[in-house]
Design a protein around this nucleic acid. Structure first.
Lengths: 346, 346
DNA sequence: TTGAAAGCGGTACCAT
DNA sequence: ATGGTACCGCTTTCAA
């Protein structure tokens, strides 16, 4: 195993001091041009690479950021990570990743690990909306922190999020525009901030259009299996006496379950039942008819999150906030009238 | 900003030497119990955390591994990453991630960056099957390297892969078992190792069952959009005079395209057309009928890859190899006979 | 323009 | 059981 070359090796080879070598390598101006050339030549020859650990220790800086996500194999989060990495690599930052699996304790231990490791900043999509004690540690240490997708209620951190309520609002207004009169909602777990935000958009859209909310038309997922929930709750809705003629679901996966229910009950989509999902995940285009949905620009959000983080790392003390606008993607599942092109983005 | 506490702070507070503090903190046995208790107390009080950079520099060890994947938001790769992280965190390793986007140059630069950074090991799913010059650098430096999913042809590195040909073989034999007589194949790009491996399994299954391969029944994807390819090529196949009664596709996404074509042409699945995909991606269960497919255990592969890497990092000099067995998941798209339960895993 | 040396925060050897 | 100190590889100040 050939040892990694270090400054001293170059210095010895040229019979000069390591200080000079260091300067030559780091483009300091007070250096003789010919010396510099020699140094660079030998460095190349020895395949010299600076030891980043030593540099970090000395400079007390470390080009590594941490990203903590609830679930790495969840499509949306993987696109967020993609966005972060895009930008990070361009700025010569390395990205270490941790997966909390929606477990606050695991989230805490990952943050702890990152902290100990000395990351210069952290981008995190917290598992809960409540500010946890482990976040304040970061603030005390003044380590830059940017939240993605789930701002905390105490509102002291920079964040990048998505306009969840408005996405739901647009979805439901669209259904109303298409002539659906009785619009149900299948929401997620009650303590999920995101789900509640979407539900509020649903309620608002009904209100603004003088439709009264029917409590029997609001269902809540209980299982961990979104599709199954969608299937069961969708069936409940479709079998009820005053069955709805449209359903807004909290995710595309839930909507996929409703497709199954509709198929079983021979309910035509979009003729008898209009449907809009949420997230624009891969599933949505594989369903038939294709599912109208609300787009979540994960990559862009990740990129913006890194930009924010970098600004903070460079010294900005402002609390940076950005809310991405909601965009509805209209497809076959909600278009009764042929007036709207199947793929138009409204 | 409160400065991070260091050994000296603790030492000064107790009027002892940093050597003693270090020992107390590191559980060395030759230390007075009461001294140790004091040290721990003060350490806690000052919220002391060892500086990992300094430790790394001193010990010349660094608990960080790198993972390089072609595409982070591709479901299979994200599950591989998940598996790696599962194990890595348990062993107290940090994971830095890079995305090559199927670009060998980018792959190279990421590896370079990781190398410079001083990672202790690398897990990579190479963009090409050919050994690239940038891999040999790793070997020269003797940095542990484990390949995932795509072993290189020169066969000098440890790897974890999947029995792609056999997966295809099982899929096609299953179709034959189900009574399909004329089985087509929609394969991927010709220079994709994985696709070719699957194709070879298809060919082998035909051969072993005395079915002659019909060149017109072998189609190759050309676009980047798998579903579109599946749709177009599926349509071609279904409109041909001697149209097949079953299709094996290189991925589930391609199969999803075939569903679209079948629907348009009013071809019944599985009655008139049997279909088996590959990867068991999310799509497969959202299609109707659900798509039979070949399972790729990404998480397990990632976990095994980390185990291999760790063995090598701990000194093993063997070339470790593991090929995961193929498993077929039989669902509605390929079961003509009701004898098989819709969800049975064979 | 160059060299000597201090020191970043630890670890571990050698004394005592 | 504890302290003194060299050293990991590099940057940077101070002197020459």
């Amino acid at each position: 195993m050939k040892k990694r070359a270090k400054l001293k090796d170059i210095a010895d080879a040229l019979n000069i001091s390591i200080a000079t070598v260091s300067r030559a390598l780091n483009d300091k101006y007070d250096i003789n041009a010919s010396t510099k050339k020699e140094v660079l030549r030998v460095a190349e020859e020895l395949n010299y690479r600076p030891n980043p650990i030593a540099v970090s220790l000395r400079k007390n800086s470390y080009n590594v950021i941490g990203v903590v996500l609830p679930s790495i194999d969840h499509y949306f989060f993987s696109t967020v990570l993609k966005g972060v990495m895009n930008k990070a690599h361009k700025s010569n930052y390395l990205v270490i990743v941790g997966e909390s699996n929606h477990d606050p304790d695991k989230e805490k231990s990952i943050l702890e690990q990152f902290l100990n490791h000395g990351v210069t900043g952290v981008i995190i999509s917290p598992t809960m909306g409540k500010p946890a004690e482990h976040f304040s540690k970061f603030r005390n240490k003044r380590i830059p922190l940017v939240l993605v997708d789930r701002p905390l209620v105490d509102d002291v951190d920079s964040f990048v999020r998505y306009d969840d309520p408005n996405g739901a609002f647009l979805a439901v207004e669209h259904l109303i525009d298409q002539g659906y009169k009785s619009i149900a909602c299948i929401k997620g777990n009650d303590n999920c901030v995101i789900s509640n935000a979407r539900y509020s958009g649903y309620a608002k859209a009904l209100g603004q259009n003088n439709l009264t909310e029917n409590p029997k038309h609001v269902k809540t997922c209980i299982n961990l299996d979104s599709k199954k929930d969608g299937y069961l709750l969708g069936k409940q809705l479709l079998l009820a006496k005053d069955k709805p003629d449209a359903i807004f679901t909290v995710t595309d996966e839930v909507a996929a379950g409703v497709y199954a229910a509709a198929k079983e009950l021979k309910v035509d989509i979009p003729g008898e039942l209009g449907l809009v999902g949420y997230s624009n995940s891969k599933v949505s285009i594989h369903l038939s008819p294709q599912l109208s949905t609300v787009e979540q620009p994960g990559v862009e959000m990740g990129e913006e999150a890194f930009d924010f983080l970098q600004q903070i790392m460079l010294g900005s003390t402002e609390i940076l906030k950005k809310t991405f606008d909601a965009r509805l993607i209209v497809r076959g599942s909600s278009t009764r009238h042929a007036t709207i092109n199947n793929m138009t983005i409204v």
